[in-house]
């Protein structure tokens, strides 16, 4: 069965909805598109697809379009969609799953800097068990190339003593390292079932 998209006819991929359902544990086939999620969505005016469109695209199996969309990276996970859905679907939980899938499959992010920020943040957690904002921000700036953006804000925060030079670290660093190592293994869904996947850490 085919569906006509902006890029021409495409084969419907029913494996996609199965995978999203299994991993996110959200009943995405129950959606009847009342659009309460899209009306409440805080970022809908900035994304390429609105929450109920994301669900519709999953129902149609439009995996490639979704994994490269800006919507999955601009979702702020405020959970307004899930709180208001009459069918108990959290689109926010679904976007978490879609982002994981996009990273696993190496799909270039629709909003390049967002995953770069997450990576810088998690690297900071991995090295000290806690986030040290100044070094995390420098790492992110170097990766993203936005070196001088927000320079003034950074200086203002520094003057207020809000960007401490020395990091606070946990003595639990070995345990943190263990956690980061162990999450690389077999993945599990939001309801605890196993599946095979890679994590962002493995791709560095």
């Amino acid at each position: 069965m085919n569906i006509i998209t902006n890029h021409g006819p495409e084969q419907l991929d029913f494996n996609f909805i199965k995978e999203v359902k299994e991993r996110s544990c959200q009943p995405v086939d129950l959606c009847y598109h009342c659009q309460k999620c899209s009306v409440g969505c805080q970022v809908a005016s900035y994304t390429d697809f609105r929450p109920n469109q994301i669900i519709r695209m999953i129902q149609f199996g439009l995996k490639d379009e979704l994994l490269k969309s800006t919507a999955i990276w601009l979702c702020v996970n405020c959970e307004t969609c899930g709180a208001r859905c009459p069918n108990g679907i959290s689109v926010s939980a679904v976007t978490d799953t879609l982002r994981e899938m996009a990273l696993e499959e190496g799909v270039p992010a629709g909003v390049k800097n967002v995953p770069l920020f997450h990576q810088a943040f998690l690297n900071s957690v991995k090295s000290g068990g806690r986030v040290h904002e100044p070094t995390m921000l420098v790492r992110y700036k170097l990766k993203s190339g936005n070196l001088f953006e927000d320079m003034k804000m950074g200086i203002d925060l520094f003057k207020k003593g809000k960007l401490p030079l020395f990091p606070s670290r946990t003595k639990n660093k070995d345990q943190v390292k263990k956690i980061f190592d162990r999450v690389k293994g077999t993945g599990f869904s939001r309801c605890g079932q196993n599946f095979n996947s890679a994590s962002i850490e493995e791709r560095g």
Partner: peptide
């Protein structure tokens, strides 16, 4: 004692397990 970062948005946006 020895609390660790909760992982915040960055963990749950990229790794359900880490989150």
């Amino acid at each position: 004692p020895d609390w660790v970062c909760c992982g915040s948005t960055s963990a749950h946006a990229t790794s359900h397990k880490l989150a």
